[in-house]
Design a protein around this nucleic acid. Structure first.
Lengths: 223, 223
DNA sequence: GCAAGCGATATTGTATACAATAATCTGGGC
DNA sequence: GCCCAGATTATTGTATACAATATCGCTTGC
């Protein structure tokens, strides 16, 4: 892969947008960004093109680039898709999972539990993502795994919100354990249903939360 | 959206790559492309960045941009995912489909049949894509619909291959009709299973075809 | 005769200068 | 006092010049 200014700028901006440090509709000024990064406009422009290509920004001819943050409805839709994709991963994993992979999954869930006990939110999320990513990998379908990872990354900042719900964390760990058991027992139907609901519930809780917050739906409709 | 040189170049190259006019690993020379399009290297570079961002090309630092065509294994994986995504569309459609949409789907399948009878391959594929896209839209999930459309576009050139199989075309039309019936009857399980198999079978046929052709697997592994 | 190091060359990466387009502000007319 | 039109200004879009890096061929030493 490329490892130059463009790549650095793209990654930095991507993280900033995905971590919510840019509001929806915020303008990405080429000149200003160029100054910030200490480079000319050229690499900045190329980075912005890439962001636009991946859907994180939108470009209007002769008018500039603007951050595109998903609205509540978009997020709900994305969680729905994520749930199905992960469920498919679990289903496929049943057909080819090795004992070592099961052990690895249990270890990752234990790491989640340990981080949760210590109240280390960041480490919890790291371990949680690793757990899910391991399931993607165990699907054996590289394209599916990559798709899942991209979507997971996009949903990352919004997952954190729903951690506040008391009791949800322990339940999440239990659900993980159930998923592992189902995969180990090679029950594709059960494993996929469990994981689907596990992810779905996050999206639904989040959606409910946002809807209660504000009823400003449709402001960032996809398309 | 942007409507400038960059956009034009990107679209043109994208179509060329997706239509198979570029071989895997072929180099996309900036200077040469700039001459071809009658512009400077700048817009070409930005277009190439976007292609790289969408996965159609790969960039190596200080070495250039190279076309990334999926290998047989990649395509098999993509068809698998496509099948599940479309199945999910059908499932969701059951919950909200209107009589007018059912009529529209039937009309589109009739258009497929008409084109098939006349032996108009291009028109058949156009109508076929429209049929599938209508189902995406009827899912009511814009993100899902957009994802499906992107993937459909990427798989387009490879779908054509399997049309040659005698009898497959008529069977395909019949399967479409079954899917419509299931959606109309609001049977989500049935509708999704039917559509999943309809798409899966294409991927599997294609995979078998390619495997028989050459056993050069893994040459273009994703990652 | 072969390998390793060095230099020439070609290509990418970046900076800057200029052109074109759109938004804004100001002035005049109604 | 409000609205429309033209000029101004700011910002994007493109071209070109230059710098840096990788590849390839050559020479030189073993």
């Amino acid at each position: 892969m490329v490892r130059d200014h463009v790549d650095h700028i793209e990654t930095t901006l991507q993280d900033a947008i995905l971590d919510g440090r840019y509001a929806d509709g915020e303008r990405l000024d080429e000149t200003r960004l160029a100054e910030q990064f200490g480079v000319s406009r050229t690499p900045v422009r190329e980075a912005l093109r890439r962001l636009a290509a991946t859907g994180l920004a939108r470009q209007h001819a002769n008018r500039g680039t603007f951050v595109r943050q998903p609205g509540p409805l978009d997020l709900y839709e994305m969680f729905q898709v994520m749930a199905r994709l992960e469920a498919f991963c679990a289903e496929l994993a049943c057909a080819r999972v090795a004992p070592s992979a099961i052990a690895a999954l249990r270890a990752l869930n234990d790491a989640c539990a340990a981080a949760a006990t210590q109240g280390d939110v960041d480490r919890y999320y790291g371990a949680n993502e690793a757990f899910h990513q391991r399931i993607y990998a165990e699907s054996g379908n590289d394209f599916l795994a990559e798709t899942c990872q991209t979507l997971q990354r996009r949903l990352r900042p919004y997952r954190r919100t729903q951690l506040r719900t008391p009791g949800r964390l322990a339940q999440s760990l239990a659900e993980h354990a159930q998923v592992i058991d189902a995969i180990e027992a090679r029950q594709p139907r059960k494993a996929s249903a469990l994981l689907r609901d596990h992810v779905s519930v996050q999206g639904e809780r989040f959606h409910r939360l946002m809807s209660h917050w504000r009823a400003r739906e449709g402001q960032g409709a996809s398309g």
